[in-house]
Design a binder for these strands. Sequence first.
DNA 1: TATTAAATTTAGATGAGTCTAAATATTTTA
DNA 2: TAAAATATTTAGACTCATCTAAATTTAATA
Lengths: 217, 217
Amino acid sequence: MQTLSTEDYLKAIYHASQSASGTVATTSIANKIGAKSSSVTDMFKKLSDQKLVKYQKYQGVTLTSEGVKTALRIVRKHRLWESFLVSHLNFNWDEVHQVAEQLEHIQSEKLTNELERFLDYPTHDPHGDPIPNRALFMKSYNKILLTELPLNKEGICVGVKDNSSDFLRYLDRRQIGIGTPILVLHREDFDQSLHIQAGNSTLMITQKTAENIYIKP
Amino acid sequence: MQTLSTEDYLKAIYHASQSASGTVATTSIANKIGAKSSSVTDMFKKLSDQKLVKYQKYQGVTLTSEGVKTALRIVRKHRLWESFLVSHLNFNWDEVHQVAEQLEHIQSEKLTNELERFLDYPTHDPHGDPIPNRALFMKSYNKILLTELPLNKEGICVGVKDNSSDFLRYLDRRQIGIGTPILVLHREDFDQSLHIQAGNSTLMITQKTAENIYIKP
DNA sequence: TATTAAATTTAGATGAGTCTAAATATTTTA
DNA sequence: TAAAATATTTAGACTCATCTAAATTTAATA
């Protein structure tokens, strides 16, 4: 059985290895977890002993297939709980992360699977991230960043890259959410800001914002 | 903020002080928690420092009012989660305890209160135990043990004293559950066993069983 | 490529919660 | 009520996850 801490590390390694090149450096995990790199080194050794990561001194880690499975089981729980909080407990999408960080550690396969059934087998969480099914398989539609959406081609917002409360509330205020149809009306060459139509309203957003919105064309 | 461990101790002290005379001995907690009494002594000191219990060497502990509140907040969460597991996630009443032991430590007032609303403000958990409301108030109906129910006076099963899986499944097999109407047809003087009518069927139960069933007359 | 900078690891310490074994206090009982 | 039994506490040690500070390796750069 994993401790709470090893689970947090595995999840962090998993997420880091998604965005980067597979192998994950000590410092990057230290930053994510909020720990010193010496602590991370210790944990890398421990996870390596448990055959959850492949670790070579000074070379970072990669998850073993068992490590990936363990990480995905946590991701699955995290995203199911987030879905539950939003769909049944009146949480807003910017409020769920912290609570789901706790709930994801609850150990009960029955609980996870029944929660999934109760939610009617959701495929995506409130931020548009795919939820691994019981077999830990998830499919994500091919999505692009809003910065890449061609002019006057309608797309639908299907996710966000930045999950911070600040960003999510910013989107709320602009009435942009998962499922909102979006059209790029004009791209400003000067600063790459965009004039877009989001739902019924037109508005201007910065490049930084557009870089954090995923679109299904 | 409490650690997981202090919460477990507070809950154990709370339950022990319910059944007994208020002050709680080191050994009784050691047994409940599954720890050595030396560890319990250490924890008593810690809780005393935090003003959650009143502790005098060799004299056991009593909860302070702050300690009671903290314990009740945990009991509240525990029983709400148990209710949720049974009412929405297809758990049987004998399966919920272990999972609720984990869920009761999740820290989010909003979560607890929304869960309560979602369940429509239940007053009792699947074992018939009262659920503290938001103000930590709970009212339990005046109940007696089945051993005390007079002959031919109908009562309703409103709870169980023994929450063990074994006992609960035993009751399942005999189709006795919360809400089941019960009538004592005959009390055997020899061994205090009872012939009862439970719902539509008549059956025999031992004194030991009867001592673990709560009845509202 | 030699030197500097950055990343990583090692060594040793800390705090929380636990344990065992010994010491002390309380309770029971003869 | 004194001796024996039981309960409780103290002292010291262990594990886990963490830290700081120093040492080492790798990467960057002049």
